[in-house]
Nucleic acid binder design. Structure first.
Lengths: 355, 355
DNA sequence: CTGAAAGCGCTTACAG
DNA sequence: CTGAAAGCGCTTACAG
């Protein structure tokens, strides 16, 4: 029966199970489990048999079934990623989400965690339920949760470990990572004022995204403190989309007293604004200064290159991953809410106001 | 005991299982399974009890445990995504992978499939094994597999449904989606020749990526047919990275007889080439024409805007998703290898050769 | 047509 | 120290 090995490995239709390797080793299944997958198994199995088991596992091409392990409460070493915006595709389509994901993936990979993207958007606690709690995922990363969503309290009450990214969530008990939106908006608005602008407009992002709300609020505050009056029509509401930036800017430029500068809540909005200016024959930055937010990859390639507020998205994603993984492994976290400082990147889309 | 409901739903620590809802309904667990999760359950349960079960499930906030279902061989409605390049982060970092993922995600979402990103790169059949075969994923999407990888034969022999993306895999038996690399290279090279260039260089991508090999081969073929001589140093090998494009272009421009045009195997290589030209004081496109491949998002924002070969990446990703899902659901596919035609996008980085 | 049993592959107490 | 049993939550034959 010397070649029974060959035969059994030949019928590779069936995967080797723990029982198979235990049988082959002439050992109990529980011991095999301890030797192969166990953590504190040192109590149970001698180093010698562990070696032997490992070899047999290799011969049989044994790999533990993660589903079965999950069923007994073992972690799956998989992180879930859930997008806060209903329009998942949009959430993923923009460079913003992508950069954050880069950081998430890099860190997860380094810690040998896989990532599952939940494509079904969160609805509410009643309709949503399955995937986030059945153990397929050890914890979840929430991206850009809207303020009107009940996803955080719901998942928290279900005991799902989570960390919120770019969600500006107020509860200090939930782990979160974000850029300092207030500081960023301050930087942007102050720049415009320092350049001599007094007719400053702001193009906010989706109203129900707290980050957008904070930027808007801080913009208003800085203007107020500087004695700059901001008429209501200078802050038209809209979304984090290029077309929204385009349309709002056209409207702005059609005003009797159009603004001489715009603080857009994101680069993609800013790109839309610049396009609109171009189509209206308004020169950027000569006649209109535009500053964005994010420092997306295309910001520096835009014409003119976009002045913007850089947020370290990949780092934010990486920090969020790290925070979640630490939590999963019981490593105490030093801080619950990590806020990254933004950075002003001055490029060619802003200029001194020339009366 | 009228409020036992409230109490039991109050101790939400424990998730409701199928047993719970069956018990509550005074029905067998098998019937509950059929009514709630079954496919051809119509044979088993009447519409009335099905309704009742559904309601109880709602009350108890019951959601089937996907792990347990997977263990019995049920599909998990999850697609795996595996990157062919060892350097996963790079694979994910580039806009290429991102655009493909957009298509994948959109289609998967529409079909209610989740996606898990395998962050552990494929090594070889011996070392790699677990995650791709234990049922956590119904099938896998392979992105940019290198020609020296044994991942496709291995997974195929394990019976894992898969489709290869941008891998230019020769075996017609494996499902695959790609751009027509040959046609693309032809388009690019022909443009340069038509513009009057005779000193044409090519900057290939990673040698072990079949797409790079095909583009290189076609470039050479078109030149040969047109009677354009290509010295060996005009086709320096390198990788799909910006720095690789930069360095190779510097070397090219330092040649006694430098090329007057470059066909870069990707936009990111082209961006590096343009940078190098800039740093060497060589004007693009006046002194050097550069054409890329991909039409990445930043291509149109580059200075000058990049002439390139557009490949419909999101569509490619979507088609791959579709192909895999169809296969999983037993829907016959009309074609195994989908090849998308590339499109020449002429922008500002190419110009007529002026002796 | 429906219930009770066996089993998916593992791990965790529980006996020897 | 190690084996046999029970159980995770489900589904699929198998009996009534």
């Amino acid at each position: 029966m010397a070649n029974s090995d060959r035969i059994s490995s030949g019928e590779s239709k069936k995967r080797a199970s723990l029982r198979d390797v235990a049988a082959r080793a002439g050992i109990g299944i529980a011991s095999a489990s301890a030797a192969l997958n166990g953590s504190k198994s040192n109590t149970r199995v001698s180093e010698a048999t562990r070696q032997k088991l490992a070899e047999i596992a290799r011969e049989l091409d044994y790999h533990p079934n993660a589903m079965a392990r999950a069923l007994t409460g073992q972690p799956t070493r998989t992180l879930g990623l859930l997008f806060g915006l209903e329009r998942v595709t949009v959430g993923v389509a923009n460079a913003f989400a992508f950069d954050v994901m880069r950081g998430i993936i890099a860190t997860a990979a380094a810690e040998r965690y896989n990532i599952t993207l939940f494509t079904e958007p969160w609805h509410d606690s009643a309709r949503s339920g399955g995937p986030w709690r059945d153990g397929r995922t050890d914890g979840v990363l929430l991206l850009a949760v809207t303020s009107d969503s009940d996803v955080i309290p719901t998942l928290t009450s279900m005991g799902v470990p989570l960390v919120a990214i770019s969600s500006a969530y107020k509860d200090p008990a939930v782990l979160s990572v974000d850029v300092d939106n207030e500081a960023g908006a301050n930087l942007a608005t102050t720049l415009l004022i320092d350049l001599g602008h007094r007719r400053i407009a702001h193009l906010p992002g989706d109203e129900n995204l707290t980050s957008a709300a904070i930027r808007r609020k801080e913009f208003l505050a800085v203007c107020r403190n500087a004695g700059v009056r901001v008429p209501e029509e200078y802050v038209p509401s809209g979304t984090f989309e290029q077309v929204s930036g385009y349309e709002r800017t056209r409207a702005l430029l059609a005003l009797i007293e159009p603004p001489t500068s715009i603080f857009a809540a994101s680069d993609i909005i800013a790109i839309g604004a610049i396009q609109a200016a171009h189509d209206c024959g308004v020169a950027v930055p000569e006649q209109l200064s535009v500053i964005g937010f994010d420092d997306a990859p295309y910001a520096e390639f835009s014409t003119p290159p976009l002045t913007t507020i850089r947020q370290p998205l990949a780092e934010i994603g990486a920090a969020a991953s790290r925070l979640l993984i630490d939590q999963l492994q019981g490593i105490p976290t030093t801080e619950n809410c990590i806020l990254y400082p933004p950075e002003l990147i001055v490029r060619g889309s802003t200029a001194v106001f020339k009366g």
